[in-house]
Structure formats: structure tokens, C-alpha cells
Amino acid sequence: MQDIITISGLSKTYATGFNALKNINLGIRRGEIFALLGPNGAGKTTLIGVVCGIINPSSGTVTVDGHDNVTDFRAARELIGLVPQELTTDAFESVWATVSFSRGLFGKSKNPAYIEKILKSLSLWDKRNDKIMTLSGGMKRRVLIAKALSHEPKILFLDEPTAGVDVELRKDMWQVVRDLRAAGVTIILTTHYIEEAEDMADRIGVISNGEIILVEEKKALMQKLGKKQLTLQLQEKLTALPAGIFGSAQLSLSEAGDELTYTYDTQAERTGITRLLASLTEAGIRFKDLSTKQSSLEEIFVGLVHQDKNGAVK
């Protein structure tokens, strides 16, 4: 299927001369949840800003469902809802008024039943007549989400929606996101909490220093880059690794001396496990239990960005 967002050759140099985006090419698939991961200052917010029309690109184009977001910006923007990273809200307006205002900006006719539904799904219904400034930070975040959804967008951008947010809200929010996805809405989110990307995303993109360094199906990514660890619990403690054991570079002994950990790459042709076990038996080391563990996305991510900084992987 055709991508719903196509970003081609996009670069952004700020007035300060800082090059925040460097020749970004990226397609977002219709109906997917796409997680954009990257350290602070990588350019995530800038990229979202350019797609949504808040920031002028220096070069390159963005099309949203076939509409160029500059020459045909009305059609492009109509499809998009944006939850910004910063908690930027009005202060004196009521929740109901500010959400209705957002809908009005998109030129949509009033639909109180729909707004009621959104407010209820975000547990904001009781607060609908409260002034925004009386709300807690978490509640304000909900208001921003309600505003972004007020015009029934086909694409939703969530820029670090869970930064500094309580567990309750996170649960509510991911439920809303799942419901939206089920209704066919495309969702692009950035997050610091990698386990969320792991839970929620269909695909993952990693951005670092203004460059997209990787885009991958989440499952494939976890498989491809996942390191696995084999932990052996020893029957007798060791003081040091005996010499001559197979794969000693990948082996480490726990401080207590009762556990051996073997780290291996799942994508390598041979993991070396058989040879390791044979070699241990030969050396007379016996173990009572063993377990394996796959590395999390976080570890993968840190590894990737680290490599990128050292220029090892491009």
C-alpha cells in the first residue's frame, strides 16, 4: 500500500546555522504505529514540526496522503493531529472551550457528542468546565491529546507524550492509542521510554544527529540486532575463568563466582553454544541450571547510537 506520509530529501538548518535535519528520507505506512527513537537533540521535534507545518524546511518535500504539505497545505494539515512535546496550553479557558476551539480551527462543524466521547475516553469529562490552569500537568497533557483528536485526524503525532506522566495516564493513553489504531488512524510517536516503543510500535526508526540511521519492523529489529545472553549457574564456585575454554572473550564470571554469562549474537551463523558446553564439560565445570535472555530495545538502541557517534555504522 502507498505510504501515508512521504518525506524526501528533507533538511533543516536553523537560523543559528545549526543543521538539525540532514537529508531525511522516510515513509510512514498507512495505519501503523511508528516509533521514532533518538537521544535528546537528535531532531525528532524538528522533524515533526516540519511535517506539521510549524517549521519551514530548508530543502526537501513532505507529502501527506498525496498532498504536498506546502503547496497543498490545507488538505495535508486537515489530516493531522499534533500533541506537542511542551505543555503549551491556554490558562483561562475551560477544557471544553479549548477543545472546541481546536475543532473550530480545522473548520469542522460542531459535534458535541464526539467531543464528549473524547473527553470521556481521556477521563476529562468531570473537568470539562474547569479552567485549564487549575489542572495538574498530567491533566494538561490529556487536554493536549483531546485537542489533537478534536478534528478527527487520520494521522496523529505524539511528541514524547509520556515524558513526566503518571502511570495512570500512560495506561489511559496507550488504550486510546490502541483504539485509534484499530480505527485505522496512523500514529507516529517519539518516546524516551523504549519499553513503550517495544510494546506499542509496529515499526521503529532511530534518529541521531539529524540522520535516520535505521528503520525496521520492530520484530525484525529485535531479532536482527538482539544480543542474547546465556547464563549458567555453576555447581561449584570458581575463582577465575579456567584457561583454554572456548569463547572466553564472550564469557564473564559473576563476582560471587557462581555464574558464567555467555553473550552471543543471534544473527551469527554459529552461536558457539555447543562448543562452549563441550569445552566446559571437558574442563570439568558442571552446572545446575541455565537460562537465556534477549537484550531489550533499549540496549539495542544505546548500542546503535553509540556506534553512530563513533562513526562505525552509517
Binding site: 490545507r74 494539515r77 499534533l82 481546536s102
Partner: peptide, 14 residues
């Protein structure tokens, strides 16, 4: 000043 201008800039309005 408050940053809510993002809403005007990302709406389908000129």
C-alpha cells in the same frame, strides 16, 4: 509567548 501558536501554525489555515 505561551507557545499555543503551534496550534494556529499546524491548522489548515493561512
Amino acid at each position: 509567548f505561551t507557545g499555543t501558536i503551534y496550534e494556529l501554525l499546524s491548522a489548515p489555515i493561512s
